[in-house]
Structure formats: structure tokens, C-alpha cells
């Protein structure tokens, strides 16, 4: 009997750490499936259209979450994601307008090849991240404050940029980026790329090391300042990319876009097993975290429950995920003391 338990434990340990989160995802889907048959009389999962809409909706959050996950693994936090989505969406859109529209933001810069607005949007986020990274790494102020400042400033900048007016009449080849499966493809490629970088490169190793023990990383000779700037820049750049996709999907951009996205992105990372204490977490976990958020949103819509309840449940789930992490962390610490 005891041997069987040990056997199970050994096999369980061999499973990737994302297995638990995957079970939660399955459990939630099953819950909505059962509730669906009881109250609505139809299946939740067996609806291709619903699944497509669900994954499309979370792709933008997912792109931001990939960056935020890296920041949190480094024991930092990035609150600026949502505002950077708005800023880079509006900057990208202003360079993607077509010449048939007479009141373009830049009348001389219409009908540009789609790569220019895309790069401009990413660069915009990258620069904002670079700025936050420099402030955090060089002045030593808490990342919470620095990125909170960026959250407010970037929202202001995106309103200022076109006097609060929306930017529309975008080129077809730019808009194409937000249509069909493109947002999902972009999200999955970004997630795959950074999953590999975090697991198999020096960049990833140093990110985990700084999050685990910054002092140890410093005396080991890692350039902490430079590394922090790189990680915050990448997070900013990914928020910029999310902004580009948002503008392309909506076929226009306005200053109110991406509101609260940063919190959804942080939630996805935390639900996906990334520790707010730093040092632990994986991009693959965040992928499941994003899907869990998607299932909750789409499940509530499916059950025709008010959006308010949805927000309340989401909040509870975020707090719950952090509580679980805290308990795990404490357990580990007391174990250290026993030795």
C-alpha cells in the first residue's frame, strides 16, 4: 500500500509542473459543461465557434502575460501593460491609415507598408519598458511604483497623442494581422519563443537567478542592472505587440483600449503557477493561466450570468492562486529551517 503511494508520488513528480494547472482547466471546462446541460441545455465544449472566440479574446492578454511572467519570475511586477496597449495601438494605427481618408493623423504618411506601423507599435512599448527598467534598476525604487507611474503616464500620452480622438480607416494589410487566426498564431509563437529562451538560454537562467536571490546573482557576477532593463524592455515590447494586434483586430485605435489588461495578464501568470516571490514559474504555465481566464469569461457569458459576477469570481481566483503560492512558499521555508 505504502509502496503504491510512493510509486504514485514518484510518477507524479515526473509530470511537468503545469499538470496541476491543466487539471484546473479541465475541471473548470467540465463544470461549465455540466452547468450548461442543466441550465441552458447545450454543450459548452462542443461548440467550435465558442472555443475560437474564447481563444481569440485571450490572445492579446496572453501576449502581455508572456512578458509579465518574465518580470514576475525576476521578482518584479509590471502594471503598465494595459496602458502600453493603448499607446502603441494608437501610434501604430496613426501610421497605418489609408490615403482615402482625408483627415489622417499624418496626411503625408498614409498607405505605408504594414511592417512600419507594426514596428512602430512594438518600438513604442519597448521604449516605455526600457524607461521603466532604467528607473527600477538604477534608482532602486519598487517596480510596483515605477510601472504604476508608467500605467498613468502612458494612458495620458495615448489620450494626448490624437487629442483623445480615435484613429480609424486603417489599411487592409495592417488590419489582416488582427483577423482570422493571426492573433492566436502570434500569441502562440511569442509564448513558444520565450518558453525556449527562458528554459534554455543564459537570459532565462539569469532571470530565475535574480528572482530567486538577487544578492547571490550579483556576487556571481551577473550584471543585474542590464538584465533588469532587458527584461522590462521585453515586457514593454510585448505589450506594444499586443497593442498592434488590438488595433488591427478592432480596425481602429483609441485611448481607452486595453483597460485593466495588465491585471488580467498578472492574473494569468499567477494562476499559471508563477510565484510573486520570484524565482519560480514557466511560460507554459502562463499559457494555461490565460486559457483558464478565457474559459471563465466565456463560461459566464455562455451561462448568461452578469459580467459583474464574472469580475468578482475572477478576483477571488487571483487571490486564491496567490494564497496557494504563499502556502507552498511557507512550507518550503519551514522545511529549510528544520535542516
Amino acid at each position: 500500500m505504502n509502496k503504491n503511494v510512493n510509486n504514485f508520488k514518484a510518477n507524479y513528480k515526473k509530470l511537468p509542473p503545469e499538470f496541476n494547472i491543466f487539471l484546473v482547466l479541465l475541471g473548470l471546462a467540465l463544470l461549465f459543461e455540466i452547468l450548461g446541460w442543466i441550465f441552458i441545455g447545450q454543450s459548452f465544449v462542443a461548440n467550435k465557434r465558442r472555443l475560437i472566440i474564447m481563444i481569440l479574446q485571450v490572445s492579446v492578454i496572453g501576449i502581455i502575460a508572456v512578458g509579465v511572467t518574465q518580470v514576475i519570475i525576476m521578482a518584479g511586477i509590471d502594471l503598465s501593460g494595459g496602458s502600453l496597449v493603448a499607446l502603441s495601438a494608437i501610434v501604430a494605427a496613426s501610421l497605418a491609415q489609408n490615403s482615402s481618408y482625408t483627415k489622417a493623423v499624418y496626411p503625408h504618411l498614409t498607405d505605408l507598408p504594414f511592417i512600419i506601423p507594426v514596428l512602430a507599435g512594438i518600438a513604442c512599448g519597448l521604449f516605455a519598458g526600457f524607461l521603466s527598467g532604467n528607473i527600477i534598476a538604477r534608482t532602486g525604487i519598487p517596480p510596483f511604483i515605477a510601472t504604476l507611474g508608467m500605467l498613468v503616464s502612458a494612458r495620458g500620452a495615448s489620450t494626448w497623442y490624437n487629442n483623445g480622438m480615435p484613429v480609424s480607416f486603417l489599411n487592409d494589410d495592417f488590419i489582416a494581422l488582427g483577423q482570422g487566426a493571426w492573433p492566436v498564431v502570434i500569441f502562440l509563437s511569442v509564448a513558444a519563443l520565450f518558453h525556449i529562451l527562458m528554459r534554455y538560454t543564459k537570459y532565462g537562467k539569469h532571470t530565475y537567478a535574480i528572482g530567486s536571490n538577487e544578492e547571490a546573482a550579483r556576487v556571481a557576477g551577473i550584471n543585474i542592472t542590464r538584465h533588469k532593463i532587458i527584461v522590462y524592455s521585453i515586457a514593454g515590447g510585448l505589450a506594444g505587440l499586443a497593442g498592434v494586434v488590438t488595433a488591427a483586430r478592432a480596425m481602429s485605435a483609441q485611448a481607452g483600449m486595453g483597460m485593466m489588461y495588465e491585471l488580467d495578464a498578472i492574473a494569468a501568470a499567477v494562476i499559471g503557477g508563477t510565484s510573486l516571490f520570484g524565482g519560480r514559474g514557466r511560460i507554459a504555465g502562463t499559457l494555461f493561466g490565460v486559457l483558464i481566464l478565457g474559459v471563465i469569461t466565456s463560461g459566464f457569458v455562455f451561462l448568461r450570468i452578469d459580467a459583474y459576477y464574472q469580475e468578482m469570481v475572477k478576483g477571488a481566483i487571483i487571490v486564491g492562486a496567490v494564497v496557494v503560492d504563499q502556502i507552498r512558499y511557507k512550507k518550503k521555508n519551514t522545511k529549510d529551517k528544520d535542516i
Binding site: 543564459k202 530565475y208 530567486s212 536571490n213 556571481a220
Partner: peptide, 23 residues
């Protein structure tokens, strides 16, 4: 140097710690 507080990254494995900063 080997420091008093050991200066190890607790979440990383042994090879990562031995080669930390000189991977």
C-alpha cells in the same frame, strides 16, 4: 568567495548554481 549567507539561488538546481554567472 563563499559568503556567510551562502549566496545560492534556492530555486535553481546544482549545475545552475555552480555555473551561475559563468555558464
Amino acid at each position: 568567495a563563499v559568503y556567510q549567507n551562502l549566496a545560492l539561488a534556492d530555486d535553481l538546481d546544482v549545475p545552475s548554481n555552480i555555473f551561475l554567472g559563468q555558464e
